[in-house]
Nucleic acid binder design. Sequence first.
DNA 1: AGCACGCCGACT
DNA 2: GTCGGCGTGCTC
Length: 804
Amino acid sequence: MKIASVIVDVPAKQTDKAFDYLVPKQWEDMIQPGMRVIVPFGPRKIQGFVIEVKSTTEVKKLRELVEPMDLEPVLNDELIKLGDWLAENTLSFKIFAFQVMLPAALKAKYEKKVKMAEGVYLSDLPLNLHPYFKNGGMLDWDDAIKNGIVPHLQREAAKGLLEVVYLVKERVKKKQMKYIIPLVSKEDLLVEIQRLPANAQKQKQVLEYFINHPHEVEMRKLIAELNVSLSTIKALSNKNLLAETVKEIYRDPFKDHHFERRGPLPLTKAQEKAITPILHAIQTREHEVFLLYGVTGSGKTEIYLQSIQEVINNGKEAIVLVPEISLTPQMVNRFKGRFGEMVAVLHSGLSAGEKYDEWRKIQRKEVKVVVGARSAIFAPFENIGIIIIDEEHETSYKQEEMPRYHARDVAIKRAQTYNCPVVLGSATPSLESFARAKKKVYQLLSLPVRMNNKALPTVEIVDMREELRAGNRSMFSRKLFELLKDRLEKKQQSVLFLNKRGHSSFVMCRDCGYVVNCPKCDISLTYHRAGVQMKCHYCGYESVVPRACPECNSEYIRFFGTGTQKVEEELGKILPEAKVIRMDVDTTSRKGSHERLLKEFQDGKADILLGTQMIAKGLDFPNITLVGVLSADTMLHLPDFRSSEKTFQLLTQVSGRAGRHQLPGEVIIQTYTPEHYSIQLAGRQDYTQFFQQEMMVRRAHHYPPYYFLTLITVSHEQLLTAVSTTEKIVKYVRSKLSSEAVILGPSVSPIAKINNRYRYQCLIKYKREPNLTKTLKMILDQYQKEASKDGLLVSVDVNPFILM
DNA sequence: AGCACGCCGACT
DNA sequence: GTCGGCGTGCTC
């Protein structure tokens, strides 16, 4: 007797444990841990993951599992363990932990349908139901709801005339192609051709084809080329001369690309020095975390590539994480160019089917290297030799939904299991990582100079208050305008960077200061020129732009702040001869448009590249000699203790876009707070100084890396309920933790209301609290039960990245 | 999460 | 008297 322990696809506190099922005899030999199975759960059928196969159980009333959904496990033993670890550490449900490790295509789809019970005739049913079951088919439950016949159906179901069926469906099909292969030798084919009746011309033609092509051929191609029909081929396969085979094929997201193969580049002295400890760790199978700290253009990627080469030479595999936003064709090119077909790429631009296919290549060990965004950290390799996280400081490595994991933590966990190194690369490391490197928890590797010994660009900080005083009300300072004109004349290229976050183009009344807010969320609506609409970026609420101020009736109500669209317009006015390419979510949403725009810019089809975050990284074009940051302080004043760090990182990164090649670069940073240290030090590209300064701030305010954080957010439709629940939680936490922990709250969330739900929070700062996890679990236990009752929502984020 | 079971108000 | 509201508790 075999029993399977299954984690079922029901994300709830009470079902967050393994359920045991009897394995039917016919599946006994094949059911393995890590497979997806369909199991009965109450009255329905759902998907689950087998985490263990055993022979005894405590459970009395075992039911049989229905069937496996996989031929091979989709999770290996390591990933099953990792799932447990993830759920435990992020306080998430196990089922979420498993689902996040797999491509979305493997998540089940459920269908509820109604059909006539066995042996029931249409005439047995009431007349009004006849149209729905006329051809003996199944009726979709959703359709039944739409048609309002659910009560009728239930009545007949109770009588046993109708039956409700639950289906578990796959989301994508494996893409398959049919091939035809000859089953007999060339000689036999010749004999068979003679034997065919004279009127079987087409069959003869097919056999003759296989005399010259003894290998399998795609069926579609065969039919098209010889102009034969499917029946001809069927006839031959019935005679056992040919056979049909089915092959899984991959959707190739890069099929139109040519990747120029490139060998390793010679390393500089500094690179040589940095790579040696990494190679050593690979060779001696040691787990170690390296922080590769190197300014932009110092050649980190080449170190990644050569380390990976060493890993491949050792017969092992490599995972490379890059921020979603910089998973550009340029980046992919470098890896595909070096390792060709051995690389799988996973990013959000791929369709569900394409992602699944890339994942299959990894699972089937057809590739050795994975380059991907956050979730690629779960690549199902079984012999990992190195994990690389580029732009280590990026916030996109933290998932903001359950399971709220940080890819860096997962990377280190997996690397420990495989005894392999982790390389964290950055020009502006997160304070956490750099502090750990200083404490020798990580090994620090530095690349202090740019590769071609190019000087860093000169940076000038422009005080926009001065501009205003001098009567310049435009968004371009005189200096920036002058330089833009200069570059235009010299036929060199400029990049203008606009940080849209924070103050995007909201609509404000110039008379009374009224700002158009979302009625459901406590946040200003964003102006979208296309469609002349206001949209809420949190709940999707839309409204028209008001003609007059709802408060004071003034007509002077306009959009404020500066979106990329507005800058583009403005540029058209002041520099009409300049050709501008705009890159933001609106212009790059279409597949491949990101790449196309960059290509155009690279080919010199434009003078100015204007964009948001997405142009801050990876851009490496020789003709860029000017970078302008239109407003450096938009993110500086966000209610987030990391805002200085983020500002510094962003400014440093953007500055790095200029003058990477022969021509020297110039950077203009426009700001209203030029004295702020993160702007000053970004201007001087002085990370060390910034680190010291920011560490002091963090220590003074009990923030990471000195303290750990946990954020509890409570939301409810009633303001009072939200506050009082948070209050109770704060009290409870206080009673359980040591006096060393700092417990703040209840305080209103930086976004006070989303979708008509008030949000309050409790922030816990601590160094060592052995009781914390237990306490948090208790809170979740308590309130996730209450949640269903009256719509109370409690979420816990351990090590939050954004305090919102 | 669903779904059934179960106990109180407004209808044939 | 029954139909149906949604509160409570279970699903191997």
